[in-house]
Design a binder for these strands. Structure first.
Lengths: 138, 138
DNA sequence: GCTTGACCTGGAGTGCACTCCAGGTCTTAC
DNA sequence: GTAAGACCTGGAGTGCACTCCAGGTCAAGC
């Protein structure tokens, strides 16, 4: 056991870039990982798990400011669990809203694509100069 | 008929800011609208429809560069319909993927929130110093 | 006729989240 | 012992999508 990962491996496994890993450390999003004798970062399994979770928050659009707040609460231990849960619950409801918003835009896109299909059908049926007269809605 | 809207009304109705409307015009995302005798913009119903559609594209994360390409194709008329439809189809599939991605992050969030609930339950059941020993996963 | 408020222009500034760079160190392989 | 490659640091640069600003014009109400 006691597996560790180089920064390159951590980047691979988390999907973040090496630069981003160092950047996250600088801004206090991740605790500085252990270092080997040469001063190089050694990420633990726990570090990796945290990085992976961070990517979920980032993917869902949580601003770094809030991720950092969450990270700092986490650092303060179990006493902050209620607050952390609250942050996640609020964030989750934002994500749900975002999904609903995307869904409704998707409906518009479907409608538009269908419109184009219809337009093309009519264009194909109309031979010659009169084709130019076919116009589109919106 | 022949309704027109001031820039403030267009902003209200489209959800974009006045500055953004002028910005979109500058970068060629929207055709310059008509002007009144005093040089003020008069947005037509058609302009408004286009703005509203643009907000759907923006909301779904289409980069401005691509929105502009779409706008320019649109400007070139019906001959570009096939290409525009293709852009929308590709974009739509991106949006679908994005929704799926958010959904899967949502699962993680659900899991985490449940974890916190469980943690809190255990904390509540454990009175005194031993509570400190309860630790969290991840 | 003068103030107020909405609008105009060109250009500069902002916030976010990285991303890149120069110049240096350390380990490993030959 | 030396060359290559991975890593280090502090700091500067980037791309995106706005957003703000100064200084000016114009129409309407008092």
């Amino acid at each position: 056991m006691l597996v560790t990962y180089s920064i390159a491996q951590a980047a691979d496994l988390s999907g973040l870039s090496i630069d981003t890993l160092r950047y996250y450390e600088r801004i206090g999003l991740v605790e500085p990982p252990a270092r080997d004798s040469g001063g190089r970062r050694n990420y633990s399994e726990a570090d990796l798990n945290w990085l992976v979770f961070l990517t979920k928050l980032r993917t869902t659009g949580m601003p770094i400011r809030l991720m950092r707040e969450y990270a700092q609460l986490r650092h303060r231990g179990v006493a902050t669990a209620v607050r952390r849960r609250q942050i996640l619950i609020e964030h989750r409801s934002g994500v749900r809203e975002r999904i609903a918003e995307l869904q409704s835009c998707l409906d518009v896109l479907d409608y538009k694509v269908d419109n184009y299909a219809e337009l093309e059908r009519r264009l194909a049926a109309t031979v010659g100069p009169s084709a130019v007269q076919i116009e589109e809605a919106s």
